[in-house]
Design a protein around this nucleic acid. Structure first.
Lengths: 246, 246
DNA sequence: CGACAAGTTGATGTTACTCAAAAGTGGTGG
DNA sequence: CCACCACTTTTGAGTAACATCAACTTGTCG
């Protein structure tokens, strides 16, 4: 549905993102390619990792969407973090790591083991790429806290959509203004701490006012300027003018 | 105000927490003690690290409370994470790290440089302690997302207080049911994504119903059983019965 | 075509926010 | 000891945002 040849291109997309974090040596790239070749498929809704379980080995998401999720005893669900192609799951820097949360597939996904860097040399290659990927994930977590704590429903939705668009574009899957979007409004609600009904009404209102369009599993940002303003979305690679003097 | 000799004991409290994460060799403990001895004081409200600035060197919080905070342009503030004695700031595993958020002192604090482990041996000593401390911080971030996304105001406040009590007790500062508490209701509001007025009313209601007491900079959990139930607080070191079959 | 999931709509309820002011608290200097 | 200040907590009344409940409609896939 989303391109000419659906078999091998996704692989390189996912790896492209990871490689962009740091200069990865040719031999390491081969390791990645080989790992990606052995990726296994997991159907939507299936649990990938369960909370508290020991992590056998870190994984790379090659295709599809997944998420960290937490259920409360009365059925409320909060999705903590969305995982997109190229994201690394379960990478930890200490011994005997256990999964801090349950990870489930949001769509059909392809997963492969994350190859260990051949040389454990810091500040270079794959080691550095993994470290930066993890640091970036932490930034997304922090931004998510801001969203949930201080943004209104329209702001939350817009801010999150802009982030997803940016992340997907980073992996070569669409552009920041037009990207594939395989999740239901119920999932959006569980990510953003809202109800699906409220998500629906809010999206409709944004659609009516010409901000964006969501149709057929695709998001189009129609007026990026206004969208960014609505969400106070932090500009990519801009000087941070956060200086609050005295 | 909080004990007989206010000069040196805090130092060992903070280090106790860090050391508890992994067996730290005697020589490494000496490094920590020496670093703590050179701690410098920073007054409340002062900025410790600003967003986007390069991190010169990781720090250990020896005494007092600090936090990661983010301001929106219209004055809204979200506190992302609270830092307590023994917490490590700005520890990163990749090269040229920059501060993902601004860190400010919530009270007067003592800070010292985090000594680099003498032997860069994974799975042992200080390296492992730092790694586990960071992993634990990530778990607190995830829990915070659940709080903000899916818990009501009373649940948020209770859940957060229980977490703070546990963390302080872990560092030897009070017990999980009785601990020092140097922050205003306005700060609580900015942590929990509420307004200070609503925090006030909610705390009063919990006080009236016998859950807890907050007075004179001290929190007392009066009925832990009921508090834990109110917040669905995850039990420490309990088997995780999260198995959702099929 | 039928069944099931997803999206949409309406009516109503509740939680939490806003604005504004009063009352309490602690520190400082005369 | 008191007066004063700034800050924090508390209270009240009105409002806005979001949730809830319950249909109904649309779309998709076998």
């Amino acid at each position: 549905m989303n391109g000419p040849a659906p078999t091998s291109p996704e692989t390189s997309f996912a790896l492209r993102r990871l490689i962009s974090f740091a200069p990865v040596e040719a031999d390491e790239q081969v390791l990645l390619q080989r790992a990606a070749g052995s990726a296994r498929a997991i159907p939507a809704r299936r649990e990938i990792l369960s909370q508290g379980a020991p992590i056998r080995q870190p994984l790379i998401l090659i295709d599809g969407w997944a998420c960290h999720a937490h259920m409360l005893s009365d059925g409320r669900r909060q999705i903590l973090h969305v995982l997109l192609p190229g994201d690394v799951l379960g990478m930890s820097s200490h011994s005997d790591p256990t999964a801090p949360t349950t990870i489930i597939a949001l769509s059909n996904v392809l997963l492969c083991p994350a190859p260990a860097p051949p040389v454990q040399q810091a500040e270079h290659g794959l080691t550095e790429a993994y470290a930066r990927s993890r640091a970036q994930d932490e930034i997304y977590l922090l931004r998510h806290i801001i969203r949930l704590g201080r943004l209104s429903a329209p702001e939350r939705i817009m801010d999150w959509l802009l982030e997803i668009g940016e992340r997907l574009a980073f992996a070569g899957l669409g552009t920041p203004d037009l990207f594939p979007f395989p999740v239901t409004q119920e999932v959006i609600a569980d990510i953003l701490g809202l109800t699906s009904v409220h998500v629906n009404r809010t999206i409709q209102s944004m659609r009516r006012e010409g901000y964006l369009q969501i149709k057929g599993g695709t998001v189009s940002i129609l007026d990026r300027e206004r969208c960014v303003r609505l969400a106070e979305y932090p500009q990519i690679a801009s000087a941070a003018p956060t200086g609050i003097s005295r």
